[in-house]
Amino acid sequence: MTADSQWPLWEVFTQGSKGLPFAHAGSVHAVDAENALLNARDVYARRGEAVNLWVVPSSAIVASAPSDAGPFFDPGNDKAYRHPQFYKVPRGVVVF
């Protein structure tokens, strides 16, 4: 790695407040994990946008392929009986 290198890329995830899920915020370049965390704080949390941060080497992210999205998610898309709307309730009865 030369001094002029842009360094490895890290994906940054922020938790907006306690109890919320972590969401992808963007990425930073950093020489190691510790610096990635500091850079992520300076770039993505200058105004209290996060109470926690995750940084993950971009190369470690495994993603589904958009071109296969149809068949890949199909097992979850054809099961109407997994939704409450599939079930009939007698008229006038409040179930919830």
């Binding site: 790695m1 290198s5 360094w7 020489v31």
Partner: peptide, 16 residues
């Protein structure tokens, strides 16, 4: 800023 980049790189290499 080159010395800062060089120092960070050297530090990371040393820690690794």
């Amino acid at each position: 800023g080159e010395w800062v980049r060089a120092a960070a790189t050297a530090y990371a290499a040393k820690r690794a």
